[in-house]
């Protein structure tokens, strides 16, 4: 329920979020410093004189003591100045802002689709326990759940793109099509066309967890007094299933969704890489491989920010779903 305590609650949650974010960026910073390899080697020309190399190192601040570097790093992050990418020679912030919508599109649609599908199927198998439906859905779900994500992605690419030619192999847009100034609808259709396979990969591999959680949770609520009482009242089965058993079973599943989102970041990186989806995960993978410190740091920062924000959002949504939660 939303009342006076709500603003206070939100403020507290945002403060907590900022603290988590601070911890994350600190870890990211030190993680990169202890990694083996010299970042400057990527941009230095072997023909350069040692003086020139020193100059470049100095210009990137790599000769400063590590805590001075950390201080500069913090100051820069707060002012959203995340430096220039070694690879692109462009401000990191600019690159991230360019990639962020792509990642959000893939993540949000996959999370929503997986939870809707998981809750829907979990409700069915909890209601029809020990039926063939439960058996088949469990086997299919577990099959995909245990399959490595990138492998599933590759298989889908092989079948639907390579063999059948139904979907593009990777990327997000068809450059050839876009160069002809297509209409908005054509653009949207093209993006959806590219989105389909990565979306299916992420959804198929993660809905099963939600499905089983929903099933377990609902098997419990089916034994609750209020469900038995609703049965005793002779309410239609559909009402008992949806308004009584499933509605209450969803609550712990939503909590799991919060944990699932942070878990799906890793899956997101893999999926974006396999499908060359121009998002933050793909950029993170590439910049880490190339020791593009500023960009990798920026990507990590952004992914953490997405996670923290979505957790706060789900927390707030939760209060709408469960009237017993109040913010005092």
């Amino acid at each position: 329920m939303i009342h006076v305590g709500f603003t206070k609650y939100i403020t507290r949650r945002i403060l907590e979020g900022i603290i988590s974010l601070f911890v994350v960026i600190t870890i990211i910073f030190f993680l990169f410093r202890v990694m083996p390899g010299d970042p400057v080697s990527m941009i230095l020309d072997p023909k350069m004189t040692p003086e020139m190399k020193e100059m470049i190192r100095n210009s990137y601040g790599l000769n400063e003591p590590i805590f001075v570097q950390y201080g500069i790093y913090l100051k820069n992050i707060i002012t959203l100045n995340m430096g220039n990418s070694f690879h692109y020679s462009k401000p990191v912030f600019e690159i991230i802002m360019e990639k962020l919508p792509n990642t959000l599109l893939l993540f949000t649609s996959a999370s929503i689709l997986a939870s809707v599908l998981g809750i829907f199927l979990g409700r069915i198998i909890a209601w029809k326990r020990n039926s063939n439906t439960e058996y088949i859905l469990s086997v299919v779900g577990l099959f995909f759940y245990n399959m490595p994500l990138f492998w599933l992605g590759l298989i889908l690419i092989y079948i639907f793109s390579f063999s059948l030619g139904l979907f593009p192999i990777g990327g997000m847009i068809d450059y050839q099509l876009w160069s002809f100034n297509p209409s908005i609808i054509e653009k949207i259709l093209d993006i959806l066309h590219h989105l389909f396979l990565p979306l299916i990969t992420l959804t198929v591999s993660s809905f099963c967890g939600m499905m089983f959680l929903m099933r377990t949770s609902m098997v419990e609520t089916l034994k609750e007094d209020y469900v038995i009482a609703a049965k005793a009242r002779g309410l239609p089965d559909k009402v008992i299933r949806n308004k009584y058993a499933a509605r209450n079973a969803e609550l712990p599943v939503i909590t799991a969704l919060i944990l699932g989102i942070s878990g799906s970041i890793g899956g997101g990186v893999l999926t974006e890489t396999v499908f060359s989806w121009p998002g933050i995960g793909y950029e993170l993978f590439r910049s880490t491989m190339e020791r593009d410190y500023p960009l990798a740091q920026g990507c990590f920062f952004m992914l953490s920010l997405i996670t923290i924000v979505s957790v706060i959002v789900i927390d707030v949504v939760y209060s709408y779903l469960d009237p017993r939660i109040s913010y005092d």
Binding site: D225, Y226, A229, Y244, N248, L321, D322, P323
Partner: peptide, 9 residues
């Protein structure tokens, strides 16, 4: 045992 007979939501 009325405590849990009503739907909490």
């Amino acid at each position: 045992g009325a405590m849990n007979v009503l739907n909490p939501v």
